[in-house]
Design a protein around this nucleic acid. Structure first.
Lengths: 225, 225
DNA sequence: ACCTGAACACCGTTCAAGT
DNA sequence: ACCTGAACACCGTTCAAGT
């Protein structure tokens, strides 16, 4: 078979790959939201037949699972002792929400413990065990941290309803008033402003410190004996 | 117009109500999951034309927002000082996840601060202000608590992949192995078991205590001065 | 053997035609 | 004036017909 013909009129064979499809899907979700991810639209972006996607994914559900894997793989957990590893896991989860605000809901919306999450969680567990903690006690710490980090990232995304971080109080009130129904009582608008407008970095750090400081004594006890 | 005719062949007028539609929608989601909620299927359950639903909700999106309201309205926040109000808010959110495991994802999947959430949050804020805390400091506590409670409830639901609470370790391993892909490395299966299998009540309490105990000193300071 | 497009059974929503 | 069903523009997926 002449090479020229292959390059000029090459078959679709092998043009699509799992990774390529997932990258295009993530781009689509980041741009237009989870609702806009469609097998047909995705195939269109890749100049392929919609049915060709089914050679790489059994169903749309399987494709979404793959997307969760792609997202978890972007969470980098640093090496070091638990004082380094645990905050880096929590910060990695939060950073994921910032980089992919649209796609993030997929990560925790379809179960928090899929296969791709287990690597990062293993790193955290191992760091705590190296520090002398029992496996079950280590799991307790990691679960608490995961719940807080995931919950905060979700909350932070939902606060981001068009209010600039450095906006004046008046601007905040205007933005919140527009985001809620017209019949919302004034004092509940104030509750919403109070809840939604804060220094997100500082607030996240506050909860993180609370949890790590609260759990630290357990470790000291173990080491001391 | 003869009353008999009204009762025998009464018009569809007024047969549908916002509350009735929402109740049927919640029932549908509880039974068959969020994916099965369809304007057509919902109308079928109510023996109505699909388009009749649009008299009460502008769109399916608006109906989902209404569902979030229904769910939040089931969160009861007890009266009392902050030591009572804050745990009751956290427990209420967690209980919601237990009563409506399928529908729960709607509550935090579409923004954590919709109008129906503001009532319960206001109760918590007020309790802290009554205890002498500044508004901004009160908001910090409530945000931390909301992030943890919401995150934990989500994590707990995702752990519930067919593992009985009282299952033996062997049963746990079998259930986890079945829930994850066949090619999952053994040591990651063990990570999953360790993360997913625990006394959920105890674990939730642990994080809750950690946060409330960590925040309590701020209040004592305020009162003491 | 591998690929793919027509076809099926849905979906949310518009809108014109009914009462 | 209020209601509603046919119709439109989608959707995920099956499967038979192609190469």
């Amino acid at each position: 078979m002449p090479a020229a013909q292959v390059s000029v009129r090459r078959r679709a064979r092998g043009r699509l790959s799992r990774a390529g499809i997932l990258a295009a899907a993530l781009e689509l979700v980041d741009q237009d939201g989870v609702g806009s991810l469609t097998m047909r639209r995705l195939a269109g972006r890749l100049d392929a037949d919609p049915m060709s996607l089914y050679q790489h994914f059994q169903s749309k559900e399987a494709l979404l699972d793959g997307l969760v894997g792609t997202l978890w793989s972007e969470v980098e957990v640093m090496d070091g002792d638990w004082q380094v590893v645990l905050p880096s896991l929590a910060n990695g989860i939060r950073r994921l929400a910032h980089v992919h605000p649209q796609a993030f809901r997929l990560v925790f919306g379809r179960g928090m413990l899929p296969l791709p999450a287990l690597g990062p969680l293993d790193r955290a567990l191992t760091a705590l065990e190296r520090a002398g903690l029992a496996r079950e006690a280590a799991a307790e710490m990691v679960r608490t941290l995961l719940a807080y980090a995931g919950g905060w990232a979700t909350l932070e995304l939902s606060c981001d309803c068009g209010v600039d971080p450095g906006a004046s109080q008046v601007e905040q009130v205007v933005a919140i008033t527009r985001a809620l129904p017209a019949e919302t009582p004034t004092h509940l608008l104030e509750v919403a402003r109070l809840m939604a407008c804060c220094d997100m970095d500082k607030q996240f750090e506050l909860g993180l410190r609370l949890i790590l400081d609260g759990l630290a004594p357990r470790l000291v006890d173990v080491r001391g004996r």
